[in-house]
């Protein structure tokens, strides 16, 4: 995903900037991104977006830490999108492809 692209969802650009900032190391950028999300979508969007960022920060560590594979059916279903987004280049892809070469 390119953060500066129009993703066709209300507040999409602000959410991408918030996602980058909340797991990044620029506190001033995060404070600005938080205000932008609230202005674009509403104040309720800040804890909602934070909950999703928190949840997937957890899941990414659980997945990579435990080395779980994507199951074979999901792998077939996502072939095109993985190729488009370059996901197959992630080093953690090996946790899947070592089983389904």
């Amino acid at each position: 995903m390119q953060p500066d692209r129009d993703v066709g969802v209300p507040g999409g650009a602000e959410l991408l900037a918030f996602s980058d900032a909340v797991v990044g190391n620029d506190r001033a950028a995060l404070d600005e991104a938080r205000r932008a999300v609230a202005a674009a979508i509403g104040p309720q969007a800040v804890p909602a977006a934070s909950a999703i960022a928190a949840n997937f920060s957890k899941n990414d560590r659980v997945a990579n830490g435990c080395g779980i594979p994507v199951d074979e059916m999901a792998l077939k279903r996502t072939e095109e999108i993985r190729e488009q987004l370059g996901l197959n280049d992630y080093r953690s892809a090996r946790n899947t492809f070592r089983h389904y070469a």
């Binding site: 209300p10 959410l15 797991v23 979508i41 309720q44 909602a48 960022a53 949840n55 997945a63």
Partner: peptide
């Protein structure tokens, strides 16, 4: 699940955070 926050908006945050973490799963 979150009031005033659509599933599309959820998946934008989820996808971006997982991309930054390079989580293939």
């Amino acid at each position: 699940h979150h009031e005033g926050f659509s599933r599309s908006q959820v998946e934008i945050v989820a996808g971006r955070v997982s991309a930054l973490n390079e989580c293939f799963y």
